[in-house]
């Protein structure tokens, strides 16, 4: 290719159109994202005394949430529950997503588009509907779950999973996995399609089996996509609220065993039953959620992403 010298952009003349084009996005983003975020962080440094006047209290709210025995137990319970929720997604959703993508990209597969659509379908359902459906399925009283297990002779394994402290959170996480597994599948499938066929053929001539081709050639090439899927999962898990609320309500029972950051925030901010809502303490929980997600994303950007090599194909 010839090296053509492009005319330099004259910034003085270009200024007006540049700002004109940037303005809509900048204004909308500022008004609806940056300002509320900063304002809610600001709110977390105040407390409302008698009748709504705000007084600046510095880090007192943070001391309350993290230091007060009652609050800190609740907070750390929600935090660790959220970590478990995330762990189930990482250990179940992503491996299944990768496996489904690998199967979808097999050249011999028939009805590829049908499978893809079916697996992707749940992501289009409302979370409330999904929560309701699964409650119907898993209800020990009138659910169809026991009957379905009976077909395979496994009825004895059935338990009131959503109602037991030990299994409720994991069950909810698995319901969420069922709903969202289509997203990692599609992203990884797209990454797999981008791998040149020659590379696979070259490994096959060298004697690699299907599985070895996947393990040695394809997996390293889709690792950046998997890392991206993981961080997206992290962000959405720590922002999760809707599924738990629709199945368990804001009390996240039994005995707060399904309480995660989102439901904790809801109760703190709006109040629930006997507990009074406090916008300032709610803003503190929201700011802590923001910090947790920020730490996760920074870890991804500065540690994970830098170590992963993206190969030029």
């Amino acid at each position: 290719m010839a090296h053509s010298t492009r005319p330099m952009t004259d910034w003085r003349k270009a200024k007006l159109p540049v700002f004109a084009f940037l303005a809509p996005a900048t204004i909308i983003y500022t008004v609806f994202m940056i300002y509320p975020l900063l304002d809610s962080i600001r709110l977390s440094f105040y407390t409302s005394v008698s009748g709504g006047d705000l007084t600046f209290v510095g880090l007192d709210n943070y001391r309350t949430i993290l230091g007060d025995p009652g609050w800190s137990a609740t907070f750390w319970n929600a935090f660790w529950n959220n970590m478990k929720f995330f762990a189930v997604h990482m250990l179940v959703q992503n491996p299944i997503g990768i496996a489904l993508a690998a199967v979808l990209s097999l050249p011999q597969l028939k009805l590829r588009n049908t499978y893809r659509t079916l697996i992707f379908m749940p992501t289009m359902l409302s979370v409330v509907v999904v929560g309701f459906i699964w409650q119907l399925i898993l209800s020990p009283v009138w659910g169809v779950g026991p009957e379905i297990l009976d077909i395979f002779g496994l009825k004895s394994l059935f338990g009131p999973w959503l109602g037991k402290e030990g299994s409720a959170l994991i069950t909810l996480a698995l319901i969420s996995v069922w709903q969202w597994v289509g997203i990692p599948m599609m992203l990884i499938y797209a990454a797999l399609l981008a791998i040149p066929e020659d590379l696979v053929d070259a490994a096959v001539v060298d004697g690699a089996s299907h599985f070895e081709v996947f393990l040695h050639i394809k997996l390293p090439l889709v690792l950046p996509t998997i890392a991206m899927v993981s961080i997206l999962t992290f962000v959405s898990n720590f922002n999760a609220f809707d599924l738990i609320y629709s199945v368990k309500g804001a009390l996240a029972g039994p005995n707060f065993s399904t309480d995660i950051m989102g439901t904790l925030f809801y109760r703190t901010f709006f109040g629930y039953q006997l507990q009074l809502g406090s916008p300032t303490l709610g803003a503190t929980v929201a700011s802590l959620m923001f910090i947790i997600i920020l730490v996760g994303v920074l870890f991804y950007l500065f540690v994970v992403q830098r170590r992963l090599s993206r190969y030029q194909l």
């Binding site: 020659d198 053929d201 070259a202 096959v204 001539v205 060298d206 040695h216 090599s309 190969y311």
Partner: peptide, 18 residues
């Protein structure tokens, strides 16, 4: 392919970048 005594150099070489 892997049981034939042939090997192939591909158009875009297909070296494994990883």
């Amino acid at each position: 392919p892997n049981r034939r005594p042939v090997n192939m150099v591909f158009q875009h070489l297909a070296l494994f970048p990883m």
